[in-house]
Simulated assay, not measured.
Amino acid sequence: MILARTFFQYLLGFGILLLMAGCLGKPDLSPTEDQPVYFQYYYESAGRRGGWLIDQAGNIRQYDFYNYPHIFRRWSFPENEGLTFRELQSNSLLARVIRGQVPDTEFTERKEWIAETSPDQLEESANASADFHETFTTYIWDDDEERYQEVLLQQRGYYGDVDNPSKMAEEIVVWMKIVWDTYAQ
């Protein structure tokens, strides 16, 4: 009798565990309110490397690895594991030159677009440029990994052309190009 009751309790506990695991579903991937960096542009051309990012205050912060190689040595790259809050914040602070600021209402609206990008599905093409490379990215928080994951929005150049098929990713790239031309002095 005791053995049957213990076995039944084991089965019940195991069933509840399976039910809970099934309810977890996809991890929450979204921007956070205190996120240090929301959008980033990076380029390589003829040995020069650098770019700009938009921080949590809407500041457009520029970085230059060619003229300031010490920044490159201290920069945290996301690779596959993503970036911690501290690493993303450090990158933001290393991009010392503030070129301008995105207006609050516009910036608030664009941050909401991030949740509608697709971090998983990318479309590659065979096109490649031998002398230039650029990427447009955003960052989203991964609760499971407790890190910010980089989401590639668009890549052009000698590593091949890659597009994020999300309509919102395309909109963000267009907006980022306008931001640089409009607000960065």
Rank of each mutant, 00 (worst) to 15 (best):
L88K: 03
K177P: 04
M20W: 15
R156S: 07
R48C: 11
V97A: 10
N59G: 05
R61P: 04
F65S: 07
A130M: 05
N67E: 08
M1E: 08
L122P: 00
F65W: 06
L29H: 08
A21E: 14
P69H: 03
K26S: 14
G50S: 00
T84D: 06
R48T: 11
G157D: 02
I71N: 05
K111G: 01
E79G: 15
Q155H: 07
Q101Y: 10
W141L: 02
D28E: 15
Q155S: 02
P69C: 05
E33Y: 07
R74T: 13
D34H: 12
R49P: 03
P27M: 11
F136D: 00
K26Q: 15
Y38A: 06
V173K: 04
E33I: 12
Y43G: 02
M168T: 11
F107L: 03
S118W: 06
D163Q: 14
F77H: 08
R156F: 12
E134K: 10
W180P: 03
V97M: 11
E145Y: 11
G160L: 00
V162T: 07
S129H: 11
R86I: 09
T117M: 03
G22R: 05
I2K: 06
G47H: 02
L19H: 11
R74L: 13
Y158M: 09
S118Y: 10
Y183Q: 09
G50D: 01
Q155G: 02
T108G: 05
L29T: 07
T84G: 04
G47V: 01
L3A: 12
T108H: 12
I71R: 10
Q9T: 08
P119Y: 04
L29V: 09
E123A: 09
S92C: 14
L29I: 11
G15W: 03
M176H: 02
W175C: 03
E170Y: 10
H133A: 00
A128Y: 01
E123F: 08
K167I: 11
S45I: 09
Q121G: 01
Y10H: 11
E112P: 03
L88M: 09
V151Q: 04
V37T: 13
P103Q: 14
R48P: 05
M1W: 06
E134A: 09
W180I: 10
I71Y: 14
Y10C: 15
L122N: 01
Q121H: 13
R73Y: 15
L152C: 13
W180L: 06
H70A: 14
D163E: 09
R49H: 14
